[in-house]
Simulated assay, not measured.
Amino acid sequence: MRSLSPHAVRRALRPLAALGLLPALLLTACGSGTSAAKESAAVPAAAASTLKINTSPEQNRIRAEKAEEIAAKVPAAIRARGELVVGITGDGIPPLSFLADDDSTVIGVESDIAQLVADVLGLRLRLDRTSWENLFLAVKSGKDDVGFSNITVTEERKDIYDFATYRVDQVAWEVASDGRITKITQPSDIAGLKVAVGTGTNQEKILLEWDERNKNAGLAPIEIQYYQRPADYYLALKSGRIDAYFGPNPTSAYHAAVSGDTKIVGTVSGGGDSLQGLIAGMTQKGNGLVEPVSEALNTVIENGKYGEVLKRWGISNEALPASRVNPPGLPRPTKK
């Protein structure tokens, strides 16, 4: 089977879902590490028979009720506007944030979580589709109220932004399904390999740390390659130009399940060996929005709406028992 583009992935979902194969495949592939399990025991894994995949623009999102006490804590300017502007990247691959079959409507777990938060805060949801780089600028400047885009909490980012957590951060090693690599669990497993990773991501940081450890141990260095689009690194995997792709676990597991071209051979915490990474909604530092966002998340965690959303997209194993504001983040880069 050829490597699938994001649009082709969405088309491939339909026959798999109709045959009842996609849920079982997806949930089998979407494994998480031990550290994640400690953080995410609140919501049981979705049963294969209950997972339904809808890639149409008519999402019929799971909705929540307004909580007056929490809504009253939203900064006055946002309340007066009546809408929550959410920065989101819609050009990724399922199930986090991607485009529906109309190639314009942003769907996925991130927009669903954003909808729940907006509902609890009594605000209309407006998604501002942007690039990863511009997302941070938009939140910092106040153009966007909050970013929901698989953003990991780091100590460095906490200098500029506030965070309200809502998922554990797992990253996965994805390789060709017919390749020689069967597992990647430690730095020595990637010595001498050609590895693709997203620039400026936490998985890049982990990859560089593993490479440094290998070189200090006298092992062969890795060759890092960067691609702009998911279709590019999947084509590189298929053609053998790279040995592995290191990316977010949900997206890699989803692609592996649908395409059949790849498989997951290992997962690690987005924090590497030092700390369990956490995914969070990101707000402008000190503007007073992060607390009501976190309270809104805790409201939907407690009433089960949050669990329904994660179950809908097959990532219940990344659930958190509670949202926290500005928890310990991934450590700052080591100064040499």
Rank of each mutant, 00 (worst) to 15 (best):
V325Q: 00
G200I: 02
G314W: 00
T251N: 07
N287C: 08
A47R: 06
A45C: 08
G271P: 01
D102W: 04
P248Y: 00
L208P: 00
K215T: 14
Y234H: 15
T105H: 08
S149I: 02
G179N: 12
T34R: 06
R81A: 10
T199I: 05
R129Q: 06
W313E: 11
Y245M: 02
V86M: 15
G304N: 04
P23H: 05
A191T: 07
I184T: 04
I301E: 06
P15E: 10
N60P: 05
E65Q: 11
P333F: 07
V109M: 15
G142I: 01
S149P: 00
L27Y: 03
E155P: 13
V146C: 12
R10W: 05
A42M: 01
A17V: 14
Y161I: 10
G82E: 04
V106H: 12
I190F: 02
I53V: 15
I279S: 12
L27A: 05
E58Q: 10
Y166R: 03
E68N: 09
W210S: 04
S252C: 14
R79G: 14
E68L: 11
L310K: 07
A100H: 06
S323N: 04
T185H: 01
N202P: 14
V197R: 01
N287A: 03
P57H: 02
V43G: 10
P230K: 09
Q186I: 12
K335F: 11
V171R: 01
R324L: 01
I78T: 13
K215H: 09
P230M: 06
S188A: 15
M1C: 10
P331R: 02
M1D: 15
M282I: 09
R81T: 09
A176Y: 13
A8H: 04
I190P: 01
Q170D: 09
Q59H: 00
A118G: 08
V139N: 03
K194G: 11
L123H: 00
G272A: 11
S294N: 04
T50D: 14
L27K: 01
P94C: 13
D91H: 14
K285Q: 08
T262Y: 00
N134F: 04
P333H: 09
T152C: 11
Q203F: 04
A253V: 04
E155N: 06
Q186P: 05
P321W: 02
R11W: 05
E65N: 13
T152D: 13
N287R: 07
